[in-house]
Amino acid sequence: MSDPTRDSQWPLWEVFVQEKTGAPHEHAGSVHAPDAALALQNARDTYARRGPVVSLWVVESRHISATTPEDSPAFLEPGPEKIYRHPRFYRGAKE
């Protein structure tokens, strides 16, 4: 604790902000904090200085798993191919 060169910036947390009830929480950015309570305080000071914000989430960055750009095309590819998941695949009275 007394080493003067030591200067932890603490772990990184990702911040999600909900701007009104019913809206999704959207990624706003990140903060550094030693624990969740301070991460929330820092997120409030950094990303909610002005409204509208009704709710904040924080999660330590290391807990987020994400797709990689290399794997994404193959991993996400089946979506658009399954045209029977879209209403236009079906014929109805309107046509």
Binding site: M1, D7, S8, W10, A33, P34, D35, L38
Partner: peptide, 16 residues
Amino acid sequence: GRWVREAAEAWAGKRA
């Protein structure tokens, strides 16, 4: 500000 950073860290460690 060093003591503030150190105190926050000590507090987080204690709570963990």
